[in-house]
Each structure stands twice: as structure tokens, then as C-alpha cells.
Amino acid sequence: MDFLEYWNAVDDELAAIPARPVLDLVPQRTDSAATTYAVRITSAGPYRVFGSLSIPVGDGPFPALLQVPRYGSVNNMAHPNDRSRYVVLTLMHRGQRLADEFFRAAYPGLLTLGIDDPSTYIYRGIAADCLRAAEFLLGLREVDPARVAVVGNELAILTAARRPAISAVRVSDLVLYRAMEARLWSSHYPLEELNDHLRSGSSAEVIGRTLSYFDPIRHAPAVTARTLVGVEDPGWYVPLVDALPAGEAYQVTHLDGTDADFYDAWLAGQVGVPAMSKFVR
């Protein structure tokens, strides 16, 4: 199956499955600035995934922010600064905490689950979860559809590529970008999972083929949104930034207070809200 067929099949599967969202108020996360809900929606599989949705108090529509899941069992809830400025949906993909009723992701282990075949690779479902979350967010009446952003790792690029209504993307800490090369550099997880899997008898050719469906560089040309890529080694990321039609690079300083403020201000500027630092000076 070629790249477009593969992803069109994911979209077709999602289109055939109603999301059936259920929202439950979360009183402890609701204050004078925003109202927060626990959201459950159906994704491909079918699989019920979890999101934390917050909606600012006041007259909308508001800009919106989809926080795609990080690689790990837990995603922090959206910061109150973000909840006050955006409609925020923080997604827990299948297998993560709060979305693990029928499948529990293992760490290490998730990165290679089903990786020997693109059709069984767990990231097919995880990507579908992100796409379903984007659809849900874009459909909310409180959301200004012209100001919807997605932030996170390569799943943000993939989501924006498949859902062109998204207008801004901010990515950092990419895992699946040139992963077959990056796995050779150290024994650090999560990429070491690929080496572990190869030691168990798989082949680099097989898992490299699967990963090629998920490498953000292959999705980048379809991203119409303004996209900021946080880069540590600019040379390593040149192909990705160049492949993004409206891409730009931010050289990470490793002064993570400075970096966080830059990221916040960049996104705020894209959708027309004030910048806010998480560190109260």
C-alpha cells in the first residue's frame, strides 16, 4: 500500500465511525477563567479515547489549541495560562493513562508495538486518535475555525497535514523523524526501543518501511499551516523545515525558560492572543 492509500484508508475508517462525544464537567479544574470537561470520543478501531477540554469564560469564539500526546504514559493537563486564552483539548491517545481501559501502553514497548507491518503498527491508531481529536475540536461552536493550532511532536505535523483547517503548528522533541538514523546515536529511550526490537529478530528494512509512513518529513509537504520547528541541530532538521511549505526553525537554546517563552509568544502571535509566561516573575 502506498503512502496516500495508507492514510486515506485511515481517514475512511474514521469517517465511518461516529465520534459520539461525551462531556463531563470537571469542577476542580473549573474556575473564573475557564470551564473544564473530561471528554471521551470514539476513534478508529473503534477505540474510546480521552481528552481534557477547557473553554475560556466569556464570549467566543476563541482560538483553539490541540495538544497532541507526548511519548509517555501521562500528559499533563493544560496549564491555566492556556486554558484562559484558548479552547484547549489535551488528548490521551489509546493506551495512555485515562485512555487505557482496554489497552495499556508499555514503556518501553509502545514504539515498536506491531511495527513489523504498517497495518498493525500502533501508531496508525494513535495517529487516528489525533485526527479524531482535531475533528472534534474544529467542530465545537466555541472555536474560531480560522484560529486552530496544534502543538506537540511529529503527531502535530501529521495531524495538520491531514486536517488542513489547522492554521498553526508548533513542534519539538520529535521521536519519529529520521528515527532509523537517530537510533544509532545512543542507547537512550525511546529510540533504543527500535534497537531492542531489532535484537529480538526483526529487520531494519521491515521497521524502516513502517516508520516511513510516520516520518514527519513525508507529511510535511501537505501542511499548509504556519509551522515552527524547535531544533537542536539545525543541520539535522533542514530537510524537514525545507519540506514544510510555511515552516520556520527555532534554534533551541536549552535555556528552557527562554525557549518556553518564545514558543508561547510565537503561538500567541499566530492566533492573536497575548503572550503569557508560565514563570511568574
Binding site: 509517555g72 501521562v74 514503556y107 545512543s186 537512550h188 529511550y189 533504543e192
Partner: peptide
């Protein structure tokens, strides 16, 4: 929020 990773780098 982290799960412990295998501490290979320390063993190395």
C-alpha cells in the same frame, strides 16, 4: 509523569 526507562546509559 515519567515511567522509568532502562538505565543502560548509567551501566555504560
Amino acid at each position: 509523569i515519567s515511567e522509568p526507562t532502562i538505565p543502560k546509559e548509567w551501566a555504560e
